[in-house]
């Protein structure tokens, strides 16, 4: 669901990122607190219409919800088992609409536009020590590295299976964390190399190597 921008020319794509994020926040709060089925139906139809207006194919739209279906199914099943199937259905429908709305925002908004909006929104917090540009970069990198870390996890799992270890969360966690930390060093180095300087300062005036370049470089 993250980091998948669907390029198209549509009124939804053209809306400012800040407005879309605001609609998402307010819309999610309203939908999650709504218990009236007719109002939820209106919300659902509105979101579906917005998908159509954004020219997002049905398959792409459904693919956004699919990964969450098993959790939603479990929530519904739990409520059904304790005799509260109506409440289970209500919670499930609320989450489906909110997930669809969130997906619509990510599908129609470039991450850089979203981050620029977040950076502007955090601007007033500068006097409190908040660095909006750094927060925005961290968020965009979190989105960018979800698939990278997922690939790393798949590689570790594959290597373990090749050596006879079928399924072990602990055995997966240690090498994955080590890889992630090593990757973090490399990424920090790359940020330096690409001119990123959040403090506006020279990187080093001592004999110490810059942060991210402390480990021996791989030869």
């Amino acid at each position: 669901m993250l980091g998948i921008y669907h390029d198209a020319r549509s009124p939804v794509h053209r809306l400012p990122a800040g407005a879309k994020i605001l609609v998402l926040i307010v819309g999610a709060a309203l939908i999650l607190s709504e218990s009236d089925w007719s109002r939820l139906a209106i919300a659902g139809v509105s979101v579906a219409s917005a998908f159509a207006l954004a020219r997002i194919p049905a398959g792409v739209a459904v693919a956004q919800i699919r990964p969450a279906l098993w959790i939603l199914g479990a929530i519904f099943l739990f409520h059904a088992l304790i005799g509260e199937w109506r409440l289970g259905a209500l919670i499930t429908v609320r989450f489906v609409i909110v997930l669809a709305l969130a997906s619509l925002v990510t599908l129609t908004t470039r991450v850089s536009d979203m981050m620029a909006a977040i950076e502007r929104a955090l601007g007033p917090l500068r006097p409190l020590g908040v660095k909006p540009a750094t927060v925005a970069l961290c968020l965009s990198m979190a989105i960018r590295f979800v698939p990278v870390l997922s690939n790393e996890a798949a590689a570790v799992r594959e290597a373990q299976r090749a050596r006879g270890l079928e399924r072990s969360l602990t055995a997966l966690a240690s090498p994955l964390i080590l890889r992630a930390l090593r990757m973090a060093d490399s990424v920090a180095e790359a940020l330096h190399a690409r001119g990123y300087d959040p403090e506006g300062l020279e990187p080093s005036t001592t004999d110490e190597p810059p942060k991210g370049a402390q480990r021996p470089a791989s030869d």
Binding site: R110, S112, S140, R144, V187, A190
Partner: peptide
Amino acid sequence: HQIVYPLVEE
């Protein structure tokens, strides 16, 4: 490790 934004142009 060098590409830090999700989209190519970004």
